[in-house]
Amino acid sequence: MNKPADAARDKAADAAREHAVEIRFGQVGLLQVRLHTTNPGAILDELTGRTATAPHFFERTAVCLDLSTLPKLPSAEEIRAVMDVVRRAGMLSVGLAEGGASVSALAQDLDMPVFTHIRAVNKPVPVVQAAAPAPEPATLPALMQNQPVRSGQRVYARNRDLIVTANVAAGAEVMADGCVHIYGPLRGRVMAGAHGDTEARVFCQAFNAELVSIAGIFRVFETIPPELAGVPVQAWLAGEDLRFAKIGE
């Protein structure tokens, strides 16, 4: 048994001496089962088909029933039948997704909780969501780097292209979420599509890179292919394949 676990247990024991219970706010992930029908047979077929693909993942998993996509509000009986087939598929229904006063009444009949959607309009917007950065416009101008990028230095263009008008030394790193253009000799490492943009490309004037990466797919150059050394080159992704070609041919 490791020390942190012991410490946590001691702490819990201390807390138990003071209070019988502790009520804390915690967020947990919850699967939602969105019903398109209340026909138990159809639901069971569908669910057993899904769970067969990953039985352990769904085993005794708590699910929340979402009734919003049903043509009309079902009765408590119908829901009980649905809960029964959900259980037979290996999962446990623990509540209903919020859906107005009628769903709340239904939940009361069933003696089940109603789970409130984070996105529910009648709820104040949680602070975490308000603080989340708004998606930045796609038209940020490219980051210009006019000084040489020296060994040990890194330049990163977030959410945009990077243009380097000087050289990139061996041991230096230039990165962009978009494309990277280098108009001096490139001897260091270059990463385009740093956040997974597979359309990003690398263009350089004199190719001698140590490493080229696009959207995480990379290639190191222990020996530069002789036909590429020192000439203008572009690199792009074709599926999982990182490709290189001389520019202007």
């Binding site: 020296r150 060994s151 030394a169 230096a172």
Partner: peptide, 13 residues
Amino acid sequence: VRDSDRILGLLSS
């Protein structure tokens, strides 16, 4: 040459 390049980087930052 590599080390000098590193130093030049430090000089500029």
